[in-house]
Design a protein around this nucleic acid. Structure first.
Lengths: 175, 175
DNA sequence: ATGTAATTTCAGAAATTTCTGAAATTAAAG
DNA sequence: CTTTAATTTCAGAAATTTCTGAAATTACAT
């Protein structure tokens, strides 16, 4: 797998974006590469294309699998794994959102609930602060329940609503 | 400013979340503290509460200001700055989204447009890869235009739509 | 079973990020 | 203008994260 200039630009940028969104450069580069590749790649092809250590590729693949962003394929007479990425941008996006929700939002909800529960017994906690925490919890719960709802809507309808954009407001403003 | 157990739990968690979302622990802790505090705090109060260096607080404040997440107040007869955080969770959330859009999405759109523009001349680039990049750009543009639309909707209506959740789909599914 | 290819683990190296504390700068008060 | 308080800058220290390469493990093939 040789990278054309455009692919290289894409993969490098993808890698940098990864570092800003909480995954390592390598993980994001591997994802970017698989995402662009017309055919599934073996770990060794990834190694030679990106010039990173075999073990790094192994770890990156494992990480991407934990996000459900890549799939494994098998080729007759070849015992190596071949990897490909989810190629639909909308589906990939939703998988990333789901992963971050589970990794970060859910634990935050747990912490906030513990805070709210402990508030009444905390003599050093001002009413204002306690209220602020409660409001934060309520907001995050509202946001996650919205997400859980939206997540279940069939893809075509999701797309439709996304394309409506601000018109949704106009339609519902009256309702 | 002494931290009660609940405030401490909140601030420490906020700090850890920060590290996962691309800001340093200190920046997130300072924000968490100001967010909870019933009254604006001086830099030195933040220093003693969080036990971090004065210069670190200074840098963190600067960072938070660049996100428009905090405000500066002045007290008669006191030449120190007093800082407070945006206390409405929804507004804070929107400011964070806006900041990330500007810092990460916009540059990505630029890169993708460059890629799409360069594609035809890139002999090494497969049709499939070129198409993948175009689709990604289209998706991101769709997402940002949706965001730009939603951003302009009046807050109360935004809230209303958020609360409707999946019902929006039911209402619009027929439309 | 034995050999070989593929993959994973893991300890430490390298790179990056974050933080500190001293020095410099800015700005208000006397 | 001088003094003092407040803030910022910045070089290097500390902490953290990421990556490598050798060794171990796993799994397939003969």
């Amino acid at each position: 797998m040789e990278l054309s200039p455009t692919m290289e630009r894409f993969v490098l940028h993808w890698g940098e974006m990864g570092t800003r969104w909480g995954v390592s450069r390598s993980v994001a580069q591997v994802h970017g590469l698989l995402y662009l590749s017309p055919k599934p790649l073996t770990a060794d092809e990834i190694v030679s294309t990106l010039s990173i250590a075999r073990s790094n590729v192994s770890a990156s693949i494992k990480e991407l699998q934990s996000w459900n962003l890549i799939q494994t394929h098998h080729v007759m007479g070849d015992r190596r794994d071949h990897f490909s990425a989810i190629s639909d941008p909308w589906e990939a996006f939703m998988l990333i959102v789901e992963g971050r929700k589970q990794r970060e939002i859910d634990p935050t909800l747990t912490t906030l609930r513990q805070c709210v529960e402990a508030s009444p017994d905390d003599k050093g906690l001002s009413k204002e602060s306690a209220k602020r925490i409660e409001e934060t919890l309520e907001f995050l719960e509202l946001l996650t329940s919205w997400y859980e709802d939206v997540r279940r809507v069939p893809r075509p309808l999701q797309l439709k609503i996304l394309k409506l954009g601000g018109k949704v407001a106009k339609l519902l403003g009256k309702a």
